[in-house]
């Protein structure tokens, strides 16, 4: 058997320790699906993990299902995908690899039918092509997608980058996982900074402060927030500075608990608003006293020039 032949491999993960133990204890319960190649060696269509588990368990011979030698490559691909898809839900990357195997040379209409029947995947050509493209992404990005560190919409954006740039972004998300909206924010910021400064995304992420934040041990959410803040300040320096100043001015007002000040978003417009929470007439009265005193506060002139 040619263990190096991964033409039909959908999953890159090694067999779990539990599978190896089970094989050692019970033997191989479900035989793999093989095909005899022209050179008389066997090629695995389904059961890569089981074969590897048997090897690790030092088994010298195993039972197997073997397809006819004259089975067409398309048939073998369909058999490999169907065997995998019927035994467990496929991950996004496994689905991508499966799509690549299915009738790659057939016209779209014919191919869509094969994909629908074998893989159970419905969708337009664009959607299927998007999923298919995932398995062509650089290895680090695939690893990040597999680890859920890079969400599908973000992976599709990384597809448009040079490999080394996409990998740099994926490494950041592998190290500092973020929600989809934050991944998007980071990718936007990195791309825009790069465009403005004439740098590649990878060069943007070489910023020493970002590297330090990535290397820090401890709270990864805080480190992720720090990276976003570094990128934001670089992309929007004036806005970041003004926002910081306004925050400082608001803190000078020393508003009591349960009164909050809401300046106009993005400094646009002139309308500020205050929110007061109170449980009693006394508390309301105290709030109003404090607010009246605020009218003479020098910080108010900075906020309402």
């Amino acid at each position: 058997m040619d263990l190096a032949d991964g033409a039909f491999r959908l999953s890159e993960t090694p067999p779990a320790e539990a599978l190896v133990s089970s094989v050692r204890l019970l033997g191989l319960l479900s035989p793999p699906l093989l095909r005899e190649r022209e050179d008389s060696r066997f090629q695995i269509l389904d059961g890569f993990k089981r074969v590897e588990a048997c090897r690790l368990a030092d088994m010298e011979s195993i039972p197997a299902l073997i397809l006819d030698k004259d089975a067409s490559p398309d048939f073998c691909a369909m058999a490999a995908v169907a065997a995998n898809a019927s035994s467990r839900p496929l991950t996004l990357l496994e689905t991508s690899r499966a799509i690549r195997l299915l009738a790659p040379d057939k016209p779209w209409e014919e191919r869509r039918e094969v994909i629908r029947r074998v893989l159970g995947l419905e969708g337009g050509e664009g959607y299927v092509q998007d999923i298919e493209s995932l398995s062509r992404l650089p290895e680090t990005v695939q690893k990040a997608v597999e680890a859920d560190a890079v969400a599908l919409p973000v992976a599709l954006r990384l597809r448009d980058m040079e490999d080394k740039d996409a990998e740099a972004v994926a490494r950041l998300f592998l190290r500092l996982p973020q929600s989809l909206s934050r991944q998007r924010q980071v990718v936007d910021l990195v791309a825009q900074i790069g465009q403005r400064e004439g740098l590649s995304p990878a060069q943007v992420l070489e910023d020493p402060d970002i590297r330090r934040a990535m290397e820090e041990e401890g709270d990864r959410n805080a480190a992720g927030a720090k990276v976003r803040s570094i990128l934001y300040r670089r992309r929007y320096p004036v806005m970041a500075e003004e926002t910081e100043k306004r925050k400082q001015t608001l803190s000078e007002l020393c508003l009591p608990p349960r009164i909050t000040w809401h300046p106009p978003p993005h400094f646009e417009g002139l309308t500020h608003s205050l929110r007061m929470d109170f449980d009693s007439a006394d508390e309301l009265s105290n709030h109003l006293d404090r607010l009246r005193r605020l009218l003479d506060h020098p910080a108010l002139k900075k906020l309402l020039p």
Partner: peptide
């Protein structure tokens, strides 16, 4: 023709993107 949108733009009250007010 990329470039002009790379300034410090914010959504204005009319939902158009505008340069940040201090700028």
């Amino acid at each position: 023709r990329p470039g002009l949108t790379l300034g410090e733009m914010i959504p204005g009250l009319d939902n158009k993107m505008r340069a940040f007010k201090p700028i």
